[in-house]
Every structure is written in structure tokens, then in C-alpha cells.
Write a protein that binds this DNA or RNA. Structure first.
Length: 280
DNA sequence: CACGAGACCTGTTCGC
DNA sequence: TGCGAACAGGTCTCGT
């Protein structure tokens, strides 16, 4: 389900509270119920349950698409993958279908990890780096400069879109925001990474940041039944718009498959480099 | 190294 | 209406 803006939104609402839901900072874990052991990556479910008891939630943040809970002693890390969700609920609410792990907090609250497709994972580790060390730079951080981005793109010779979605290359960008950022920067998804000029990279980084920033502003995107509350889906220029007119030039948006992912782009605004023919 | 295919799962939507 | 195919915001592993 979620990419960087959705995960950021979830982290913020858990950290600060939202409407009738409380902030979780300062709450302690009284018990953990594992309904689907396969959701626990590390350690063994019984050990996770034992270790979490009594730990206090001190901070809630995000790294790439991972939620990171700083507890008294350990880090609780959760990846929602395609269909995961975290819900703050009353402890007396009935259990929902697809609930996988329930964290009991201060009365009357609980935090529920719900995940229809069972792709999501939970880690409890003393060192977050054991889970997060392979990740690339955060696109929104100040240390990630155009120069550095250009250098990384030059080091590789890969199709641009799959490279942007490679979490070891760049953290947090997924299928939606990759397509939207490429459209915004007028680059074809199959452009070869080391064939970009410096100005093109500059434009691409700006587009990635603006797209992610708008996504965060809109509380993420809500498409399916899965994640609700976001509005970024109303700002899609290309994603899931095959056949509809490009908002810039009016040409029909095209869908192709790149790296086994549905990929949407405007054949006029985003012409394939080297292919002389432009669709009309 | 780069890429495609398959796996992991369940639910919804599409097409005949 | 019904039923199978296709598709879904992600990542991992294997073979070429």
C-alpha cells in the first residue's frame, strides 16, 4: 500500500494523535497478541511478546517505507508492504478480519497491525541498522544533493523508473510517486540512468521532492479499500489514468509494464530518448 | 551488473 | 449473473 508520503502520514498521526485518536508517545506496552506469527520477522514471536512488555514508546519516525518506534530498550520496526495498516482502537472493539498483531497500550487503547495480504513484517531489534542498513538516501534530506544524485545515476546504467524504485538506490519512492515524478520532469520511464544530463537530474530531483511533498501535504493517496484518509489520488497526472488525456498536452496516457509494474506516462510529454517518433 | 520471472498472499475489478 | 483472469501502493530470490 504505502510509499513514503503514506508512511510519513501514518507516523505523524501515531506520534501526534489525530481527531479522537490519542498520541502514542509516552504510552507503554502492556501486552502483545500475535494472531499471525508469519507477520513477525524477528525475533521469534514468543520472544517479541516477552521483550515488548513494559517498554515505553519514546518516539515514532519513518525511514524509507519503514515505521520506526523507539521504545525504552528496543526499536520496533514495521513495514506495511502492499496492504498493511496500523490502527489505534479501543481495546473493547471487536477484532477485525486480517488483524495480525495487536499491541495493548495504556487503557483503553491498542495499536492493531492489520494486513490482508500478509506481506507486511514486524521486527523488534536493539539496533535499527540491522534492518535498515541497506537503504539508500532519503530524497527529502538536505544531504541528498543534486550533485550526489547525478553521481549515483552516472554510476549505473539502468532503466530510470526501476532504479528510482530500488530502495538501496533511493529510499521511499514507489510505483505511484515514481510515475508522477517522471511525468513532472518530462522523462520517459525507460530512460537510461547515466544518459541524463545534469540539468535533467536537477529537474528530476525537484520533481521527486515536489511530488513527495505534495503527497505528504495531502496525507498520502487513497486508492483501494486499503488506506483511507489521503487526498493525493486527486492530484494524479498519470498514475492509473491510461487512455485519459494528459493534463499538460491532452494526449492519451499510456500504460506499459516496466519491471513487472504497471507504468503510466504521456508519450508526448515524456518521449523515449533516441526514438525519433513521437505519438500524436 | 542488469533484468525478467516467480514467489509471497488476499481482495477487487475486468472481460467474456 | 457467473466465473476465471488480471491487477493491486512492495520486496525477495533465482536464473540468464
Amino acid at each position: 500500500m504505502p510509499e513514503l508520503p503514506e508512511v510519513e502520514t501514518i507516523a505523524r498521526t501515531l506520534r501526534l494523535g489525530y481527531q479522537e485518536k490519542p498520541a502514542l508517545i509516552g504510552m507503554s506496552v502492556s501486552a502483545v497478541q500475535v494472531l499471525w506469527p508469519g507477520s513477525i520477522a524477528v525475533p521469534q514471536p514468543a520472544q517479541l511478546v516477552e521483550r515488548m512488555k513494559g517498554q515505553v514508546i519514546q518516539a515514532i519516525g519513518r525511514r524509507a517505507k519503514y515505521l520506526v518506534f523507539t521504545l525504552s530498550r528496543d526499536k520496533l520496526i514495521i513495514h506495511l508492504r502492499m496492504s498493511g495498516d496500523l490502527r489505534v482502537e479501543h481495546q473493547d472493539e471487536p477484532q477485525a478480519i486480517h488483524d495480525r498483531v495487536i499491541f495493548f497500550l495504556n487503557e483503553p487503547w491498542r495499536l492493531t497491525f492489520n494486513d490482508a495480504r500478509k506481506f507486511g513484517r514486524v521486527w523488534l531489534v536493539d539496533n535499527a541498522e540491522s534492518v535498515l542498513s541497506g537503504l539508500g538516501p532519503e530524497p527529502l534530506s538536505d544531504e541528498f544533493t543534486v550533485k550526489r544524485f547525478y553521481g549515483r545515476l552516472q554510476e549505473r546504467r539502468r532503466q530510470l523508473k526501476p532504479l528510482l524504485m530500488d530502495q538501496s538506490f533511493l529510499a521511499g519512492v514507489g510505483n505511484i510517486y515514481a510515475d508522477e515524478a517522471l511525468h513532472s520532469s518530462k522523462l520517459h520511464p525507460l530512460t537510461i540512468s547515466n544518459e541524463l544530463s545534469f540539468p535533467q537530474v536537477e529537474k528530476l530531483l525537484t520533481a521527486i521532492r515536489e511530488t513527495l511533498g505534495l503527497g505528504i501535504e495531502q496525507n498520502g493517496a487513497s486508492i483501494d479499500w486499503v488506506y483511507r484518509g489521503g487526498n493525493f489520488q486527486n492530484n494524479f497526472q498519470v498514475y492509473a489514468r491510461a487512455g485519459e488525456p494528459c493534463t499538460t498536452c491532452g494526449a492519451p496516457i499510456v500504460r506499459i509494464v516496466v519491471g513487472q509494474r504497471g507504468t503510466y506516462f504521456c508519450p508526448v510529454c515524456q518521449p523515449q530518448p533516441g526514438s525519433g517518433n513521437i505519438e500524436g
